[in-house]
Design a protein around this nucleic acid. Structure first.
Lengths: 408, 408
DNA sequence: AATACTTTTAAAAAAAATTATAAAAGAATT
DNA sequence: AATTCTTTTATAATTTTTTTTAAAAGTATT
């Protein structure tokens, strides 16, 4: 019998006993994926199945090639255990991180190692058949480069900006051309399972699985790049809301007397604090002759972008730091609302601006102290992501594995 | 063997086989509690245990007196099924709804019927040993009135305002005198299991179990009385946050140029929209001679309270309605933030102000339409609670049963 | 180095749970 | 009214899983 469970969840018309066995396999594989190599005894404790049964299930999985016997491990005061681990080469996951102007592709093995990685610049996201075709071509090229048969790929995980309905596999904002829904479209064309989610939520999954949110139950992940995205881990699970629209943090009201936002409302957080605004303000000031390290871009006739700004900040550019500080004051205000509502244990800042490290953390912390009820906010840790630009891509892997290994 | 599972969850030093059996019992009881009488065949489908085993477990439960055989039911095209249901008199739950000025007590049977109900007015909440003593006395009097032995009571569920850490059983705001924590203190004194939660969250549990949130997964419940409370059902579960502080909706920033709030911050939602403010504004206007039905209170030298205001609104008092409308504009603004962040399928308004029905719903809806991104808000239904003043009390019952019948 | 104690694993025995089968009881159809 | 078809329930047979027991392979101590 082939272990189907990594492919299809609700096997229809299959005997109950088979389903039960697949669930047992899944528990074991799940434990080994999330906790690494383990002895039979350890697995027994973790999955709550008896030792003789676990032993026989592990034997099965080894015979399918899914698990490997790593030989004896360290003793903790008795007979040395035999350790077992996932065969990291049993299958692979394709990760696709779609950004407004770039595309990141990766192939992960089951130990989460990237065995392939490619960044394509100037791959501008647009809602067209052509974009989708070139995306598929990119993926197909990668597959043929790697030379492995299609069955070796467990699924394709995709991260993209905008409103995404993960349950239905729809992209509302950027790739709505695919009529059957983006996930189905790509699944048909690639002949693979496809899993979508919004970039901020994928980042949150990445942080929960591989970043600073490991072992935390209530964590907010901010994606601070040109816009502001929010991914929420609540009670240990990703929160998506009814339609997958949760996390529209950029459009909460901060200043009723403020500016008009793209969304039609006035005083949205995004009109006050976002990479876009930061860059815009700095460009305008540079045009007016503001002294700053960034002035050289004007001389060289190059455009100032967010990356340049962050670089200047890290070099200590006073003006850029001032601008960022101002932005962080507003961001802190917005965060306080989140913290009051959700009482998270940690807030992780990711996205391009996270590269500024303490230059973001410090002013945001100050702002939070000013605006928050201290009893609540003092329970919340504010940190920068250490996955940084990789978090969304890592998140696609986490999303696929979560989906495949989820129980019930 | 006595079915211990309704009392103790993590039975220590008990054989695995016993634990498993208790879990099976719990599944069956759970199904019957949440879905009412059922046949063996129905239970089999719901709990995914084989028919012979379910039959024998049901036999056991009947012999313990926990289940009743209701005799044959309606056929759906074959042999008539034997129906089984919970013995609603097997045990009882005590519900305690603590408010700032009143105390509601109830005893529920396992069919959620209130077999006892008592409302005590002028029972002012204060952080003192005396308050706790008179609370305990109230409960003890009720118990002796009902004349049932203490073992007949499954647990005491308590709802109270302010910051509550449900996991630890602590009341931070109002009843912190009990040093071991409120739950432990009461549990010792009453010799019963005690379960605490904040009033807004208890209301949310009530709505989820018995009100309009049944079968909904993402629902926000607003407790609009003198303050503003928020209880959130997210992904089907109550969200409490790291320390149980989640839901501080009253202290999110709405107007940076606004008034000072009790919490020390400026422009909190509660400074603009709360029963307290509404009453205060109306009192001031009446003192200045504003024509309104409520003016009679002044003549009669009685104080205008929230109940009176709502009554006037329902009688069509133009001034009171205007005042409420104004408040609802702000409330809508705040709600939009919630909806953008959490994408709920329903928002339920409860508390004293919910008695105003469409007089709250309509202006809040208008405000939401004005301030929200329609794609998101159009997915959210706004309704008034139909449990109204009972929702917190019903919520204590829901909380106890949820805790007792939760799986794993 | 010998002995006592641990932990891990394997195998046998026992128990638990499921599947398969049959019987009972009623509904629908001829 | 008799027959056929459903659904429910009881029983028997089989399978699955666990518990128990024992052996294997270590560590720690004397």
């Amino acid at each position: 019998m082939r272990p189907q469970f990594l492919y299809e969840k609700n096997l229809h018309g299959v005997a109950n006993s088979v389903k039960r066995k697949q669930e047992q396999y899944r528990k074991i594989v799940r434990h080994l994926y999330y906790n690494g190599a383990a002895s039979i005894a350890e697995i027994v404790k973790a999955v709550k199945i008896s030792q003789p049964l676990v032993a026989s299930l592990v034997d099965d999985l080894i015979s399918y090639g899914m698990l490997l016997d790593k030989g004896v491990g360290e003793s903790i005061g008795g007979r040395r255990p035999n350790l077992f681990c996932l065969n990291s080469e049993y299958q692979y996951v394709i990760g696709v991180d779609i950004n407004l102007h770039t595309l990141n592709l990766a192939v992960f093995d089951l130990s989460n190692k990237q065995i392939f990685r490619e960044e394509t610049k100037y791959f501008d996201l647009e809602n067209s058949e052509e974009y989708l075709n070139s995306l598929i071509e990119k993926i197909e090229t990668m597959i043929s480069q790697l030379g492995m048969p299609r069955e070796k790929y467990l699924a394709v995980g995709i991260s993209l900006p905008g409103l995404v309905d993960a349950k239905q596999g729809l992209s509302h904002t950027h790739l709505s051309v695919a009529e059957e829904g983006l996930a189905h479209f790509l699944s048909d064309r690639l002949s693979m399972n496809v899993l979508l989610d919004n970039d901020a939520r994928t980042m949150a999954l990445g942080e929960k699985a591989f970043g600073k949110a490991i072992d935390k139950e209530n964590v907010l992940c901010l994606n601070l790049s040109n816009g502001i995205g929010l991914g929420m881990i609540l009670n240990g699970n990703l929160h998506s809301g009814k339609n997958g629209f949760a996390g529209e943090f950029g459009h909460i009201l901060i200043d009723p007397e403020g500016k008009l936002c793209d969304c039609g409302k006035i005083g949205c957080l995004e009109t006050l604090t976002s990479g876009k605004i930061l860059v815009k303000n700095i460009r305008e000031a540079v045009d007016k002759g503001q002294p700053t390290l960034l002035a050289k871009y004007k001389k060289e006739n190059k455009k100032i972008d967010l990356r340049a700004v962050v670089e200047a900040i890290l070099q200590g550019d006073q003006f850029a730091i001032d601008q960022l500080n101002q932005m962080c004051e507003y961001l802190g205000k917005g965060l306080v609302t989140l913290i009051h509502l959700l009482n998270p244990e940690m807030v992780i800042i990711g996205g391009k601006i996270a590269h500024a490290g303490k230059f973001v953390i410090d002013p945001v912390t100050m702002s939070m102290n000013k605006y928050a009820m201290s009893r609540i906010s003092s329970e919340t840790e504010l940190v920068c992501s250490d996955l940084l630009d990789d978090s969304a891509l890592m998140g696609t892997m986490a999303n696929v594995m979560r989906s495949v290994l989820s129980l019930d």
